[in-house]
């Protein structure tokens, strides 16, 4: 299975950014955990992060062209603003998981609306940085159609 893990703005600051909310794990550590879990099950993970909305849209479009089997997306702050990412995800027909390290529904009211949730199959939030590797592990069990 080919999996894109796409991360939005400020995720590159993990470990240093508000560790009381996001934990001490760094993005490099998370990427490594994902790669390890994936290779154990024979999957290939492409782990990406961008602070630019357009680049995230292009990665989703790339996933459509490359017929990637699943996308795990943490759109971070763009979750609450980006109709462009919503539209790109709607065009992608593989399996889609929205992921957040913290639980946005328990935080400031401006984080309560997600433009991503209605465009994906499932939502996982508030499981900490380990949420990524748990989701990668679970993708093997899910009845996902692989080309």
């Amino acid at each position: 299975m080919n999996i894109y893990v796409i991360n939005g703005p400020n995720i590159n600051l993990l470990g240093a950014r508000e560790p009381e909310i996001y934990g001490k794990e760094t993005i490099e550590g998370i990427a490594k955990d994902c790669q390890e879990k994936a290779s154990k099950d024979g999957h290939v993970v492409k782990f990406m992060q961008s602070n630019y909305e357009g680049e995230i849209v292009e990665w989703i479009q790339d996933a459509i062209i490359q017929k990637v089997d699943a996308i795990v997306i943490n759109a971070a702050a763009y979750t609450h603003t980006s109709i462009a990412i919503h539209d790109a995800l709607k065009s992608y027909s593989g399996y889609k998981v929205e992921l957040h390290i913290s639980n946005p529904h328990l935080r400031e009211s401006f984080r309560h609306v997600s433009f991503i949730s209605s465009a994906v199959d499932s939502v996982v939030a508030g499981l900490g940085a380990d949420g990524y590797s748990h989701v990668i592990e679970l993708l093997s069990e899910l009845p996902i159609k692989v080309d």
Partner: peptide, 9 residues
């Protein structure tokens, strides 16, 4: 606070 959330799986 401190509650995880999983939906749609």
């Amino acid at each position: 606070g401190g509650v995880g959330f999983v939906s749609g799986l």
